[in-house]
Design a protein around this nucleic acid. Sequence first.
DNA 1: TCCTTCGTTTGTCCTGGACAAATATGATAA
DNA 2: TTATCATATTTGTCCAGGACAAACGAAGGA
Lengths: 305, 305
Amino acid sequence: MEPSLTLNISGVERETGLSKDVLRMWERRYGFPKPGRDDNGERQYTLADIGKLRAVKRLMDVGLRPGKIMTLPMAELNAMADARIPARRDGLAPALERDILTMLKSHDATSLQHTLANMLMRQGLQRFVLETVTPLNQAVGDAWMQGELQVFEEHLYTEQLQVALRTAINAFPRQVGTPRVLLTTFPSEQHGLGLLMVEAMMVPEGVQCISLGPQTPLEDIRRAAIAHKVHIVALSFSAAFPVRQASDGLAALRRQLPAPISLWAGGEMTRRVRKTMPGIMLIPDLASIINALRSWRSHWVPQTI
Amino acid sequence: MEPSLTLNISGVERETGLSKDVLRMWERRYGFPKPGRDDNGERQYTLADIGKLRAVKRLMDVGLRPGKIMTLPMAELNAMADARIPARRDGLAPALERDILTMLKSHDATSLQHTLANMLMRQGLQRFVLETVTPLNQAVGDAWMQGELQVFEEHLYTEQLQVALRTAINAFPRQVGTPRVLLTTFPSEQHGLGLLMVEAMMVPEGVQCISLGPQTPLEDIRRAAIAHKVHIVALSFSAAFPVRQASDGLAALRRQLPAPISLWAGGEMTRRVRKTMPGIMLIPDLASIINALRSWRSHWVPQTI
DNA sequence: TCCTTCGTTTGTCCTGGACAAATATGATAA
DNA sequence: TTATCATATTTGTCCAGGACAAACGAAGGA
């Protein structure tokens, strides 16, 4: 009899990323999750609740609506997740993806590290990011969506990839060239991997990257851009980032930023953006960075400051 | 006339880390912050509100109580922050701390990187962590508390330090020795720097570290520990982490973890813990890691699995 | 000095109502 | 047929105000 196999509402918020308000509203509207109550009338969620909430969230991130899926049993949810993965013609994943997934599932950190380092050496940093990391992220994301990967297995992947990328980035001598680019994310964006991938694409191009890591308040992005005299501010947004929040933030930042400083927004989220936003360059995939840089360089005229 | 120099309540939650509930409750009880309302009756906070909220939060992290400070004007808050910093007898900060702070305030990323790399080379990884990074963190924390440093300046420090540490850790050949240690933090703990410092202390001791990065759900920490067959699970807690939440989490984890696996908890928070917790080793400072490892090794008897 | 008890402070949770943004649906025009 | 617009539905976020337990601090006793 485990005494504490339940979590209170803030525990669930932490574990799933769903706000307390949303959890209560879902219960009110859809009848799920319907946690028991403790002596004090407070909601106590079970681990099964958490699991189903994660499954629902995964499907919502892909565009399904809560009302449609909330009441379905777990089996149905898993089936829908499977259906979402486009089957390959040959029915086979490429060897590398398959190997890496196998390593993750067998918790072989050493082989994982070796394989990544190996590919990196063979391909060089930029090709490694475009041809290896991108499809690998996709494969890991798919596996995670289908529930094939545990959270901690995905963490291990992220961690090892960061190690590999950071090592390679460090190997480049520190540039003093142009443009100078400020890299960061908005405060509610947790994922720092995208940032690192952007840096990996830019550094070989002779760009001087100044990374603040994730989660910089809006006002500080402005201050940092001015203090570091950067030419470009580049922000990264993961797939799950709310488009609305991003647009508002970007517009506000654009207003506050001196006009000569370019504002670039990249990451999975940017593919869901419909409207073009004046003064903001959307970069939906990593390969476009090269073109964007080329374009910037051809238009830029050195300023006397 | 800037149209959007105000934030709604969730914006403030993001920027300050104070929950919506707390923000509303403070307004109800202390009359601060008292934001204006938009057409729809929703709270609109000003940038000045944000600034004061940050100041209040800094002081609370050091032990002051909200009721005492909430209504004071900003000038008073800053004065209190100053008073909190123990003055040195000689009135002078050591040269290195002073230099690094100067570099941060002048946004000289290059010098910062060089200086850190230099100290690291000269002292070696463990001494660098104990004798340079620890007091430096303290100095940067103090400066931040006094409002001398901007958020983005502190971000730059963290980022550059991570780069330096990771590079050095990578330089060690991957060990296959004992113990194997799983490193991570609880889901609500954002700070990954402590984790890296722990790894930097352990790797030179021949420990095989498996880091999952920050924010692993409880259940997954258990799964990962078993899957990776680790001997020790080490968790890091920053100063602001709620003791209660840590104790609960650690106790729950201890119950779920197989008995032979040791559970270590370290970081600033652990100094505030009064009660000893059975089966959990508290490690209040980084130097103690060496002793803890020595002790573990002398007690450990290789198991046949 | 250390420990217990008791009042106060503080954070979190609750209910149930309201509304606007996002999305889907259906009608109309090209 | 496809594209565009208006309307309906869905969904997330906000609000008020009440309640309570954990954390804290002060006073009293061993």
